[in-house]
Write a protein that binds this DNA or RNA. Structure first.
Lengths: 146, 146
DNA sequence: TGACAGTATTTGCAATATCAAATAGTGTAC
DNA sequence: GTACACTATTTGATATTGCAAATACTGTCA
C-alpha cells in the first residue's frame, strides 16, 4: 500500500470538511437562536408547506431521518412549543405537524442569523464567480444523489 | 416572512445533500468491506502516520469526534482486531492506537472498493473540467473551515 | 362484508455520540 | 521536593438515531 494520497481520499476529506462546516453552522445557530440546524430545517419545511403543516411521513422524506426519528424529533420540538400535532382528517392513521406562532417567531430569528452567517462565510472566502460555480456544481452533486 | 427560497437556504440544502452522499458511500463501504466510513477514516489516518500509530488526542483532532468518542471508537475497532493500543513511552498519560496487520488488510480492501465507487460516482456525473473545478473549490471550502 | 395485504405512526432496544466528572501523570514555581 | 495548574484519557450519565416489531387504519378482492 502506497503513501500517496489518491484523488478518492482527497474527495473523502472534502466531503468530511463539508460536514464540519455544517456542524459549525449548527453551533452558531444554537448560540444565536437556541435551536439546532435540524430543528431549523423542520421549521423551514413547515413554513413553506401549504397551511404550514406537513404529514409526519412527508417530513421524514424531506429530512435526513427515518420515520421513527421524525416521530421523536417532533416530540421534542412540540414539547418546546414550536410545532403541534393534529390528526389528519382525511386519513385517521396520520398526523400533521403544524408550525405554531412561536415556531414562526423562532424560525424568523434563526433564519436571519443563519443567512447572515452564511453570507458572511461565503462572502469572505469566495468571490462572486467562485460562489456561482461552487453553487452550480454542488447543485449538480446533490441532484445526482437524490 | 417571504416564501422566496434564499441563497442561504439553497446552500443549506447543498450541505445536507453532501451529507446524504457521505452516508451513501458509507452504505457501500459497509457492504463491500464490512466497515463504516468512520472506521475507514481511522485506519486511513493511522496508515499515513509515522510508524502507523497515533496518539488518541491526535486522532480526535483529525476526526470529527470528541476525545471520549475516540476512546470508545478505538475500543470497538480494537475489539475487531484492526488496531491495538500501546502506552506512550514518552508520556505515561498517553496511549497510541496502532494499525495491526489485519487492519492494513481490511484498509486495503476497503480502499480499493471505495476508490472505485468514488471514481465511478464522480466520473458519471461530472466531466474532467467540472471535477477539477469542484475539487479546487471544495478544497478551498475545507481549508477555510479548518 | 369480511379477510387481508399494505400504509402511517409509534415504541422498544441497541448503537453511537456528547458533556462533565474522575483518574492519572506532567512540569513549573517556590 | 512538593503544591498546583495543566494535559491525556477514560468513564458515567444522557441524548439522538436506526431497525424491527407493535398498533391502528385503509382499501381491494373474492
Amino acid at each position: 500500500m502506497t503513501k500517496k494520497v489518491t484523488a478518492a481520499q482527497a474527495w473523502e476529506q472534502s466531503l468530511i470538511g463539508v460536514s464540519k462546516l455544517l456542524s459549525k453552522f449548527d453551533a452558531e445557530m444554537q448560540k444565536e437562536a437556541g435551536i439546532s440546524v435540524i430543528w431549523y430545517d423542520v421549521l423551514l419545511h413547515l413554513n413553506y408547506a401549504l397551511e404550514k403543516k406537513m404529514r409526519m411521513q412527508a417530513l421524514s422524506d424531506s429530512l435526513l431521518l427515518t420515520r421513527s426519528g421524525v416521530t421523536r424529533l417532533v416530540d421534542r420540538i412540540e414539547k418546546a412549543g414550536l410545532v403541534r400535532r393534529e390528526p389528519a382528517a382525511e386519513d385517521r392513521r396520520g398526523y400533521y405537524a403544524i408550525l405554531t406562532a412561536e415556531g414562526e417567531d423562532v424560525l424568523e430569528r434563526a433564519q436571519q442569523a443563519h443567512q447572515r452567517d452564511i453570507r458572511q462565510y461565503f462572502g469572505v472566502h469566495f468571490d462572486a464567480e467562485e460562489r456561482r460555480a461552487l453553487f452550480d456544481l454542488m447543485s449538480k452533486l446533490v441532484g445526482a444523489v437524490a
